[in-house]
């Protein structure tokens, strides 16, 4: 989805404004001329200036007949859109469940779910999901000692 520059300009200018507003609530630095609010305020001003620049540019394009919003071809296809959300959904699924349930079952579910959604043949999907889960757990968890969540398997592993 490509929006006109005026829209993104507006977003960034607003972000700059919010930054300045939030920064002005920060406490000062006793005994010093400048405090923790200085830097965010400078950045906020920069964002507003650049945002205005984009708005001007976008407005010119609009008057020249450019559309406000351009949809890509794929966005008309439900399946393609759902593919994008499959990835985002998989990350959210992992985020929510990995801590209570543990890395191994959740990673396996993520693999299997995505493989099947992307039309990998079921037997192959199961085999690769098992191997990949085991591989990740061995490589990151055992070899590199990254504390992957243990979840319900706490007492077994």
């Amino acid at each position: 989805m490509r929006v006109n520059d005026a829209v993104s300009g507006l977003v960034f200018a607003a972000l700059g404004g919010a930054l300045i507003q939030q920064a002005s609530r920060l406490p000062g630095f006793p005994g010093q001329k400048y405090g923790p609010d200085l830097f965010p305020k400078i950045l906020g001003i920069g964002l507003i200036l650049c945002g205005v620049g984009l708005i001007v540019r976008g407005a010119k394009a609009l008057t020249a007949g450019a559309p406000l919003l351009v949809h890509q071809e794929w966005m008309k296809e439900t399946r393609a859109v759902l593919n994008v959300f499959a990835f985002i959904g998989a990350i959210v699924f992992y985020l929510v469940l990995s801590e209570p349930i543990g890395f191994i079952p959740v990673a396996f579910a993520v693999f299997l779910g995505l493989f099947l959604w992307f039309k990998v043949s079921p037997p192959r999907a199961v085999v690769v999901a098992v191997l990949a889960t085991a591989g990740f757990h061995w490589f990151f968890g055992s070899l590199f000692r990254i504390p992957l969540p243990r979840g319900v398997l706490t007492t077994i592993l």
């Binding site: 000692r145 319900v152 398997l153 706490t154 007492t155 077994i156 592993l157």
Partner: peptide
């Protein structure tokens, strides 16, 4: 026994866990 106690721990929440953990600390990393 492991699987059973894991299931118990999962269903009964935290109650079962320390009992198992204490048996021979440390029995995992």
């Amino acid at each position: 026994g492991f699987v059973a106690s894991a299931a118990a721990a999962a269903s009964a929440g935290l109650i079962a866990k320390p009992a198992i953990a204490q048996s021979a600390w440390p029995n995992r990393p």
